[in-house]
Design a binder for these strands. Structure first.
Lengths: 157, 157
DNA sequence: ATTATATAGTTTCAAATGGAACAAAAATCA
DNA sequence: TGATTTTTGTTCCATTTGAAACTATATAAT
């Protein structure tokens, strides 16, 4: 099991991943920032609410890997832009449920196909079997990374 | 060629990529921020200078996918921390060449093996053939994304 | 019931980031 | 040579981000 001892950033997987991911993200972002003037966290919020209407801020945060401050801000801004509506829960006074407005729904309906089209252009070249394979590898890595994070946390206390 | 019409963020490749990449990056960052108090752009600068001493700011920027402002700031801060030394070029008065100091070199020498170890723990699970496959896909995607960006730029002017 | 603890969400302040304008030196060109 | 344009790198300003403190409500414990 040979281990390299120098680090060519261009070949270093975390670095390549980061560059690729940033490029993909900014490509996607250009779709919705230009047309609807929303940011990445705002788009993510719209995307989750499009799938699961009525979520609370905390639920959004957990589904979307954003912290609660980011969600607060995204939601506030989406409400100002009239893409999201909030209705306070009568069951729990701390909480409010969030929903897309008509125009918010329109954002969702227009952006989703474009986003999927980009996904398709980037990954669609893969044959279905390859695609499954890729998915599996990605999952593997996700879980390894989260294991590593836990180990490191454990180690540092 | 079926096309989905809804968007489960959790299955959406750009999103998964972004989460994975952020997790990997923050895992790596925890290595060097704690020990040496440097940021991600600072680490990247150290990494490139470790491989190619004497680069100028612009050269660093081009190798590392950072803009020149980010490089300026990273370099300034690294100089304050005595990890980098600048020597102005006598050939070109605008330019200065950057090098790691002794302690900068120490940062490099200590972080590289840890970074490679993490890379290895995350990707090392893949059999060599899988690894090659992954590399190839990654390259494919990189080039697809950059093609798409160009198209979009072209289209928008 | 009263106190303590936990959870949801917001605000505040400091640091990081991005873009435009800028100064200085170099290269181009008339 | 002198004028114009490019290139390099920095500074300035506005926006974004992150962490911690804080408010309000709910839950648990005694």
């Amino acid at each position: 099991m040979e281990q390299k001892s120098s680090l060519q950033l261009q070949d270093f997987l975390p670095y390549r991943l980061s560059v690729l991911s940033n490029n993909v993200s900014s490509l996607l972002a250009s779709l919705y920032t230009e047309k609807f003037g929303i940011s990445v966290p705002e788009w993510r919020t719209v995307a989750v609410l499009g799938e699961e209407p009525g979520l609370t801020s905390t639920q959004i945060a957990s589904r979307v890997a954003m912290d609660k401050v980011a969600v607060t801000r995204a939601v506030q801004s989406l409400i100002e832009k009239r893409f999201v509506r909030r209705s306070s829960s009568q069951a729990d006074g701390r909480v409010s449920h969030l929903n897309l407005t008509k125009s918010g729904q329109r954002v969702y309906d227009e952006v989703v196909p474009m986003a999927l089209a980009i996904e398709h252009r980037v990954w669609g070249t893969l044959a279905p079997a390859e695609k499954d394979y890729w998915d599996e590898m990605l999952s593997k890595m996700e879980s390894r990374v989260s294991t590593l994070r836990k180990e490191l946390l454990e180690f540092n206390k």
